[in-house]
Design a binder for these strands. Sequence first.
DNA 1: GTGAAAGCGCTAACAA
DNA 2: TTGTTAGCGCTTTCAC
Lengths: 341, 341
Amino acid sequence: MNLKELSALLGLSQTTVSRALNGYPEVNEATRQRVEAAARAHNYRPNMRAKSLATGRSMAIGHVIPISSKHEMVNPIFADFIAGAGETYSDAGYDMVLSVVSDEDEERAYRDMAAKGSVDGIIVHGPRANDPRIALLDEIGLPFVVHGRASDVAAEYSWLDINNARSFARATRFLIDLGHRRIALLNGQERMDFARRRREGYVTALAEAGIAPCASLMKSEEMTEHYGYRATRELLSLDDPPTAIVASSYIVSLGVRRAVGDAECKLGRDLSLITHDDDLSYLGNQGDVPVFTSTRSSVRQAGRRCAEILLAKIAADDMTPVQELWETELMVGDSTGPNNN
Amino acid sequence: MNLKELSALLGLSQTTVSRALNGYPEVNEATRQRVEAAARAHNYRPNMRAKSLATGRSMAIGHVIPISSKHEMVNPIFADFIAGAGETYSDAGYDMVLSVVSDEDEERAYRDMAAKGSVDGIIVHGPRANDPRIALLDEIGLPFVVHGRASDVAAEYSWLDINNARSFARATRFLIDLGHRRIALLNGQERMDFARRRREGYVTALAEAGIAPCASLMKSEEMTEHYGYRATRELLSLDDPPTAIVASSYIVSLGVRRAVGDAECKLGRDLSLITHDDDLSYLGNQGDVPVFTSTRSSVRQAGRRCAEILLAKIAADDMTPVQELWETELMVGDSTGPNNN
DNA sequence: GTGAAAGCGCTAACAA
DNA sequence: TTGTTAGCGCTTTCAC
């Protein structure tokens, strides 16, 4: 069922039917009722391709998911972010188009999206410290919102980020308060902006406590389970092993737990672990004190909010940057966890 | 830059330029060279909305990701699957449109996609045992491929599945061979088709060894870390606790590990764990014997293959069902893991 | 309040 | 081998 058929059926012009369906004020209320009833009855859905072509808006938002060309891995946190954004889009009648590209193809992906006219805006994932994509998107002129920040980019742009530095400082402080002095950091690659900020927070907290950061306790790699495993083994075999670890994601923590399991029983019991993932997340027991927040739901919320910001920009055709820094809480509680899904 | 401008620039008709760019044979080779050079030089990309409207094909594939309305959780395995499919789409010039909907909105999502004409085909995720979506899509007439199977659906349709029953039988057998008799199963919800098959495999292996399945050792819920944690605690507090666990995903296993960590040291060392995730995956140590395969890359490959099958169907306009059952290997090796990312 | 007609950017008969 | 013309299904002036 298309507009032509529907309007023929109603004995009206396509114009009137279109107006009725799109809430134009000039159409007679009785007519509108009739049209809407018919549309519902025949399950009419406007063809988006045609609509897009006529209006010039594609009613779709693009997400470019970069995958590391080396390891072909996808940060599983994207799933939750995407889910959140997806809700917002559905509600607003937007589609989400996903483009999974290895990082060297990213520029082309953006240019293609813009030129093909398949999206009205873009969400940028996983910004690097000095990320060329921001200048690129500015040049292209497509509205965009960055999830995270690019510290070395001078230009003003829209972003939503969580306060990684503060989160990691708090986590580290927490472990220090529990009496730990040798605390390891399993960070992501430092070309990622968030990883730099996380180290900053970690180092700051150590400094406050008069602890000199120790290079052998700071690891930085792609966030995989295998990395968590390998790094933890290395750490545990040091002459002076750490008594606690701050890990950069729950995927990494999987590896940490495995390595700890491999190690001597006593070691396992002595090691405190706090895992992060965009949001300060679960977990780790220090004696009887588990620590956590619910990562996954907050990442999802970030997705929702990023999408809202972008849609609002598009609707208002307003290019002034929107910037939101989110704070996270470090929670201490019983080990069933609050809202721990 | 659009077709009109480009053709004006070249002093050719839009038709000729279009033909040159789309590889039609009748165009003069010299002309084609000239056109292609100009297109490249001016960074011309055909507007997909217009192209779609004219051709009737949207050059996009839809993925509907159902999220549980209760827990709002996304199975992180989707991320890898999507990544694989995305590669195939990029290569073929297709877009991927994602629709994240709570399960009660799924039917509408499919109908919308079809009516709006935004996709040429659909990948179905997370099939239930008697899944109504298959009949629905058949009715709609949109080509589709199911990742997984719906055992109770009589109709023939295209799917790609891994042999869950066999995988879980092998995992269980492995633990039995190691001397375990009380083996627990942390399964997904049994309305999911794969969960039923997994239990089947587990029970079969037990039966072969003359072990009667014990209801108190079989759990079935949404696959979350929290579930893994809670269920493992319950299991460990039984009068006659299991000595080994087969878990249905690495997310669940996170919880298992946490619970084991909480428990007495001795308990932790005694418990064998094998985790699955679509593919038989990591892992667990039995004494010095770790077991695993690389889940994440194989899920990704499944995504790639599903997309290939779908695109082939669309290209050939061939509705005969394609069905692929994949076997997985249980690997035993050193604990750095084969290809463990 | 409603309709006719033009046009969004492209492809595909049909002619030449 | 190239060009002319007519749509694809919708929105949007502009006229009535």
